[in-house]
């Protein structure tokens, strides 16, 4: 009985849906860089543009308004996420455009898995061994 209860509990835990606001930041499996939240913010603001090995960083966003994008910006930029349109306007004056986007977490994962320079974020349920998780973000 105790074993059955334990099994049921483990099953319940493993089957529990991951919070919609939890995100995994992923890079290519061969990449050794492990950016922290501050570096991630700098990367997605296009202030930090190169990996440690000198390769250009290709940051991939989800599309504006998507659940992942909203959670990512809240987790990384906090209350200042609302200022991003103003920030990108100022960058536009300097000829800098925002990071590119892909339209699903699955596409982001597969793109990152295939490109050494790429970094993206996806729902943890999408992650497999084709990419390396370098950071987990949680937004309450």
């Amino acid at each position: 009985m105790r074993r059955a209860l334990l099994a049921a509990l483990l099953l319940a835990i493993s089957a529990a849906p991951v919070s919609a606001e939890e995100l995994a930041v992923i890079v290519h499996g061969a990449r050794t860089d492990r950016p922290n939240v501050a570096e991630l913010a700098q990367i997605y603001l296009k202030q930090r543009r190169f990996w440690a090995d000198g390769a250009r960083i290709v940051a991939v966003n989800r599309e504006s308004g998507s659940e992942s994008r909203t959670a990512f910006e809240a987790a990384v930029f906090g209350a200042r996420a609302a200022q991003l349109p103003v920030y990108w306007n100022r960058q536009y004056f300097q000829g800098v455009l925002p990071p590119a986007t892909l339209a699903s977490d699955e596409a982001v994962k597969r793109f990152v898995a295939s490109e050494r320079e790429a970094i993206g974020y996806v729902h943890p349920a999408v992650v497999d061994d084709s990419v390396t998780v370098v950071l987990k973000l949680t937004h309450p």
Binding site: S64, P85, L102
Partner: peptide, 8 residues
Amino acid sequence: IPIEPDPG
């Protein structure tokens, strides 16, 4: 890859 319009 496609260029993002902008955050808002």
